[in-house]
Computed example of a mutant assay.
Amino acid sequence: MAAPPRPGFPARIHNMGKTYNAPGTRPAARRPGTGGSSSSAPVSVPEAGGVMMPGRDSIPARARMVQQLADSGIRDLQVLRAMGAVDRHRFVDGALVPQAYEDTALPIGLGQTISKPSVVARMIELLMQGGLRGPDGKLGRVLDVGTGCGYQAVVLGQVASEVYSIERLRDLHEKARANLRPMRIANVHLILGDGMAGFAKGAPYAGIIAAAGGEAIPDAWIEQLAYGGRLVAPIATAPGQQALMVVDRSRQGVQQTILEAVNFVPLKSGVA
């Protein structure tokens, strides 16, 4: 009898029954202004299957992280599943592994950081709320500006059909390639280039997300965003201050919405 077909990458784990309610955590609360139930019951989160490179000892830590994200107001089950599926500790230096599942940004070299899990989840959830989705419920093609160590690109790969992730710093681009190489993820593409110029070859994009903030949203990003698509990026609101901006593009024009304060590295042009 012929062997069953080998699953593609990333493999998906269909186990929807696990409820994360770690000791000492509160029941999930609704984020003001978002959808979802306001019940005090814990959120039923799809089980974190470790689909990238399962580290069995990391599963409880990831489960606690996912429950904390749900408690803080992240309601999209696809986002929670994606956050629970990716081993964040594989994207940080060995000395920082004990902090990998804490809600904190961590240094990854060259003055850059891996964003807080709560920030990654928040931005991806915002993208999911407005971006173009396919019949399977996934986002279409996404542009990820600022690959860094590759963590956010891999999480995006769980919720989008295809991800183009661009990094301007050669050493970080190579680090991300090394991190992703053993994972064999077919739908995430890493590019060395100037993120401010976007990546026109992959456009139009259902969603664009950026991990660095400038004085304004580059025109190239708007031009490469599909009609009906959404862009989520930090933007400077005052000297030394940033906030998340959501940009929705339609045939009638562009709508910009400023949300909560954030703290990202500055957006720069060129390749170094």
Score class of each variant (00 low, 15 high):
residue 37 S to N: 04
residue 245 M to V: 09
residue 76 D to S: 09
residue 131 G to T: 04
residue 159 V to D: 05
residue 114 I to V: 13
residue 19 T to V: 15
residue 87 D to G: 14
residue 248 D to N: 13
residue 124 I to P: 00
residue 255 Q to D: 15
residue 4 P to D: 09
residue 144 D to L: 00
residue 130 G to H: 00
residue 173 H to W: 15
residue 213 G to H: 06
residue 103 D to P: 13
residue 48 A to R: 07
residue 159 V to C: 03
residue 22 A to G: 07
residue 251 R to F: 09
residue 164 Y to K: 03
residue 183 M to A: 02
residue 127 L to T: 02
residue 97 V to C: 00
residue 171 D to I: 08
residue 64 R to N: 09
residue 51 V to C: 06
residue 137 G to H: 01
residue 216 A to Y: 09
residue 237 T to L: 10
residue 4 P to A: 13
residue 156 L to W: 00
residue 109 G to A: 03
residue 263 N to Y: 07
residue 194 D to Y: 06
residue 181 R to H: 12
residue 219 D to N: 14
residue 98 P to M: 05
residue 172 L to M: 15
residue 169 L to Q: 14
residue 130 G to Q: 00
residue 45 V to E: 13
residue 84 G to L: 09
residue 106 L to A: 04
residue 90 R to L: 13
residue 213 G to L: 02
residue 129 Q to W: 00
residue 132 L to G: 01
residue 197 A to N: 11
residue 178 A to H: 09
residue 102 E to D: 14
residue 53 M to W: 03
residue 90 R to S: 07
residue 108 I to G: 11
residue 62 R to M: 11
residue 250 S to R: 12
residue 51 V to Y: 08
residue 250 S to F: 10
residue 237 T to R: 11
residue 57 D to C: 08
residue 255 Q to I: 04
residue 6 R to M: 10
residue 214 G to E: 01
residue 89 H to G: 05
residue 119 V to L: 11
residue 139 L to D: 00
residue 234 P to V: 02
residue 227 Y to S: 07
residue 78 Q to R: 06
residue 74 I to E: 10
residue 262 V to E: 07
residue 151 Y to C: 06
residue 198 G to D: 08
residue 182 P to Y: 12
residue 228 G to R: 02
residue 72 S to R: 13
residue 59 I to A: 09
residue 149 C to H: 06
residue 159 V to A: 01
residue 5 P to M: 06
residue 236 A to D: 11
residue 19 T to W: 15
